[in-house]
Simulated scan of single mutants.
Amino acid sequence: MTEQQPELGRFLRARRAAVSPADLGLPTGAGHRRTPGLRREELAALAGVSIDYYIRLERGKETRPSSSVVDALARALRLDHEEEAYLRELAAQAARGGSAPRQSVSRAVRPTVKLVLESLRPNPAYVVSRTNDILAANPGGLALLPGMADWPARQRNTIRYTFLHPAARTLWPDWEVKARACVAHLRAVAGTDPDAPDLLAVVGELVVKSPDFSRIWERYDVRRVGNGQKTFVHPEVGTFTLAHEVMEINRTDGQRLVVYGAEPGTAEYDTMVLLDMKGAGSLGGLSADAQEPATPAAELDRA
């Protein structure tokens, strides 16, 4: 019977495979290395632990690594702040025998937040859950993603869209970068609540339906989605680049407000106005969450 590797072990294996020995000043030796990245004995030596101890840790036989060992592994693997936090959470889960229980996550968007969405027009904006379900959007926010409005409200998820909607592959010229960022965000969510139904629903669907998602999911990249710029090749309004800000609006349930913007008087601003007009026409002036009656949480988890 094949031994089931724990989540902590899978993360350690994926991250050591991503580290180049040459970057750490280690000899690569002659010929082809059977193992990509660092070997177990190399990582153990860099972290200052025995090879036997590290093997037990990776296989789940050792479940209580000390804080100093976690520190040493993070340094050896060159983890950044978010990756180190993810490693610490996995170590804590291993020590307590699983993830901590969590209350259900609310999908309700406060009325004041919906007013903010409306006041932001023509800037495209939407509210997403921690797993990137679109919970509410102004007209431009939904029109920014061509074809999203055709999906039932319960299926509108920006990560599902990235991997499963045919328009997504040409909407972002750097699709692979965008796709990796999406998956890295889900990995960050998984670090704190790996057994949550909302997370399992979207990951389970995409692992089955998208080979690209499965490939990237196994990389174990960890990154919360942040601010920056995105270029779009939109089938209706052409190519444009918008800045975007991501703001936490409900820490308990992980809801975030995503707003895109451009300087007034620029071609990009005119594009936002056009998107807002197109979105308002397709939605009949209603916000995205008003198009369908509320769906029970249990049904949303099965979507």
Results as ranks from 00 to 15, higher is better:
residue 1 M to F: 11
residue 2 T to D: 14
residue 7 E to I: 10
residue 14 A to S: 05
residue 19 V to F: 04
residue 23 D to P: 08
residue 23 D to M: 10
residue 23 D to F: 09
residue 24 L to K: 12
residue 25 G to S: 06
residue 26 L to W: 10
residue 27 P to E: 01
residue 32 H to E: 10
residue 34 R to T: 07
residue 37 G to F: 07
residue 38 L to D: 00
residue 39 R to W: 01
residue 39 R to Q: 01
residue 39 R to D: 00
residue 50 S to W: 12
residue 50 S to E: 04
residue 54 Y to S: 13
residue 58 E to Q: 13
residue 64 R to N: 15
residue 71 D to C: 12
residue 76 A to F: 03
residue 80 D to W: 12
residue 86 Y to S: 06
residue 88 R to E: 05
residue 97 G to W: 05
residue 98 G to I: 03
residue 100 A to P: 10
residue 101 P to Y: 09
residue 105 V to D: 02
residue 108 A to F: 06
residue 120 L to G: 04
residue 123 N to L: 10
residue 123 N to R: 14
residue 123 N to Q: 11
residue 130 R to P: 04
residue 131 T to P: 10
residue 133 D to V: 12
residue 135 L to E: 00
residue 147 G to A: 02
residue 153 A to T: 14
residue 154 R to H: 08
residue 157 N to Y: 06
residue 163 F to P: 10
residue 166 P to Q: 09
residue 168 A to Y: 00
residue 169 R to P: 03
residue 169 R to A: 14
residue 174 D to F: 07
residue 177 V to K: 13
residue 185 H to I: 05
residue 185 H to W: 03
residue 190 A to E: 10
residue 191 G to E: 01
residue 195 D to L: 14
residue 197 P to A: 00
residue 199 L to F: 04
residue 199 L to T: 01
residue 199 L to S: 03
residue 202 V to W: 10
residue 208 V to Y: 07
residue 213 F to T: 00
residue 213 F to C: 00
residue 216 I to D: 03
residue 218 E to Q: 15
residue 219 R to L: 14
residue 224 R to P: 08
residue 225 V to P: 09
residue 225 V to Q: 15
residue 231 T to H: 09
residue 231 T to E: 11
residue 232 F to C: 02
residue 237 V to N: 03
residue 240 F to R: 02
residue 244 H to M: 09
residue 244 H to G: 05
residue 245 E to R: 14
residue 251 R to G: 13
residue 251 R to N: 08
residue 255 Q to L: 13
residue 256 R to E: 05
residue 256 R to F: 08
residue 258 V to Y: 05
residue 260 Y to P: 08
residue 268 E to W: 01
residue 271 T to N: 07
residue 275 L to C: 02
residue 277 M to V: 02
residue 278 K to I: 13
residue 282 S to I: 10
residue 282 S to A: 15
residue 295 T to E: 02
residue 295 T to M: 10
residue 296 P to N: 03
residue 301 D to Q: 07
